[in-house]
């Protein structure tokens, strides 16, 4: 058993340039294991860029340049010797908008495990377990072969969550994953994330301060590409040290 407060993901001197723009400046942070870390800040300050730098999805954009280190249990994911597909298997993503793959509900879950060599014999169990995990099983068990695009948006997002979990990641990145959902679905996903932190390290970007207050164990406050303040949620929210954090929490900036 790992120690709950130990650092899981640690960001060292991370700089990101987007086009010619210096989008993230010398980011340093330690993301604790099996807790929910929220990245908060006004829109356009680099939250999503930071998140996507944590599983190297940012490098899909040809204009992005990254320097610095992101250490997953001490191993730099930007090390040229590291296999990027391995990184993304261990660090999953739940996107802002639900994005089912163009296949059936069943195949959406089975897609990842199949790629990673899961035999088809046990696949039914894998699919059922993960759909149950996100409380979707009862709603879809009779139409597993139907196209995933037929689900409601809230169901789709839970499906995407199940799909991400099916490859057994250690870290789950969430990019404002409830912002496209109706309030009831959003609360359902929040509830799931809150439960998932027992087994996963969750890093979520949000611009919804109320949500951050509900969920966060650890908070990173970003302002114009820099980390202004970070720490346990109760400290950052209740006794912020920085004036800019205080102003942001009070709704004066951003």
């Amino acid at each position: 058993m790992t120690i709950r407060t130990a650092t899981h993901l640690s960001i060292r001197n991370l700089d990101v340039w987007y086009g010619g723009q210096h989008a993230l400046k010398d980011i340093n942070a330690d993301i604790p294991r099996h807790q929910i870390t929220t990245i908060v800040g006004p829109s356009g300050c680099g939250k999503t860029t930071l998140l996507k730098s944590l599983n190297r999805l940012s490098e899909l954009n040809t204009q992005v340049n990254v320097s610095g280190q992101v250490l997953l249990d001490g191993i730099d994911i930007y090390d040229p010797a590291v296999d990027v597909t391995e990184v993304r298997t261990r660090i999953g993503l739940l996107a802002q908008k639900p994005c089912p793959l163009p296949m059936s509900i069943y195949d959406n879950i089975a897609y990842g495990p199949r790629i990673h060599g899961q035999k088809n014999g046990k696949m039914d169990d894998v699919v059922r377990t993960h759909l149950q995990d996100v409380e979707l099983w009862d709603e879809v068990k009779h139409r597993l072969k139907a196209p995933a695009t037929g689900l409601s948006v809230g169901q789709q997002q839970r499906l995407c969550l199940a799909r991400a979990l099916a490859v057994r990641p250690e870290v789950l990145l969430c990019d404002e994953s409830t912002s496209a959902l109706d309030p009831i679905s959003a609360r359902a996903v929040e509830r799931l994330l809150d439960r998932l932190k027992e087994n996963y390290t969750v890093v979520m970007v949000t611009h919804d301060l109320a949500q951050a207050r509900r969920l966060a164990d650890y908070v990173l406050f970003i302002w114009l590409g820099e980390v202004v303040e970070q720490g346990p949620a109760r400290h950052v929210f209740n006794q912020p040290r920085e004036p800019r954090t205080r102003a942001y929490l009070a709704g004066e900036i951003g």
Partner: peptide, 22 residues
């Protein structure tokens, strides 16, 4: 849509697997 590629890549798929299956 690019999000669809990202969804597949984020599951640890290679570029070719993403191209083929998605």
């Amino acid at each position: 849509p690019q999000e669809m590629r990202e969804a597949s890549l984020a599951l640890g798929a290679t570029h070719w697997e993403t191209t083929k299956a998605v």
